[in-house]
């Protein structure tokens, strides 16, 4: 699989995800600097976590106008996959590639801790290997992870099976319906606040991130 990882000024999870994709899933990975357009055919484009453009104005608001993001449209039109983690999820909502938005956490604080998540919509094919009550341990690290969308949009997400993950036991950030991650209607565009790439190795506490990526990269 050929993967491009977009790098913005302020991205800080780009190398982590590239390492994981190469090491565990044998992807060939190119880094794409935000000023450049996506000029090759990639199977997957990753928008990594971090603080693109210093989170100025709103998280992801400036990033959506970068050349890399503008050229993402044609990648999407070809039906190729996009994965946005944390800041990547925020950028995808700002770019209107995913519905809703990520607001400031309800407690107004940056939350950096391991949380529990479970599958969202039962019909979402990207989480089909998980049991309904199976709980995964995945780290989060964000100030703006409080997912919000109008009631109609939430209903649409539910009806179309677009909710990827929900927080389990405790909702850390005030997210509506405990939503931690969603997909586009065709399940090709994926956005999630938790960081599976930080839960892959023996030393990282949890290895549940691998279960998530196994689903995402084999379906």
């Amino acid at each position: 699989m050929k993967t491009g990882v977009i790098v913005f000024p302020g991205s800080n999870c780009d190398k982590d995800i590239a390492y994981i994709l190469k090491q565990y899933y044998k992807h060939t990975v190119d880094f794409i600097w935000h000023k450049n357009s996506i000029d090759k055919d990639y199977d997957l484009i990753v928008i990594p976590g971090g603080f693109s453009y210093g989170d100025y104005l709103r998280c992801g608001a400036i990033a959506k106008f970068s050349n890399a993001m503008k050229s993402l449209k044609s990648h999407v039109e070809k039906g190729r996959k996009v994965l946005g983690i944390c800041n990547g999820f925020q950028i995808l909502t700002e770019a209107n590639l995913l519905p809703g938005t990520l607001m400031r956490n309800k407690n107004l604080k940056h939350i950096c801790k391991t949380v529990y998540i479970k599958k969202g919509s039962l019909s979402n094919p990207l989480t089909h290997s998980f049991e309904e009550d199976e709980v995964l341990e995945i780290p989060i690290s964000h100030s703006d992870g409080n997912y919000y969308a109008e009631k109609d949009s939430i209903k649409e997400l539910e009806d179309n099976g677009q909710i990827l993950f929900k927080y389990a036991f405790e909702n850390p950030n005030g997210s509506i319906d405990d939503i931690a991650g969603i997909t586009s209607k065709d399940f090709k565009i994926i956005g999630l606040m938790p960081h599976p790439e930080r839960a892959m190795e023996d030393w990282s506490g949890s290895k549940d991130g691998k279960k998530i990526f196994d689903n995402l990269f084999t379906n």
Partner: peptide, 8 residues
């Protein structure tokens, strides 16, 4: 285009 996020 940029200054306002009309979702919220």
């Amino acid at each position: 285009n940029l200054l306002v996020n009309q979702v919220i």
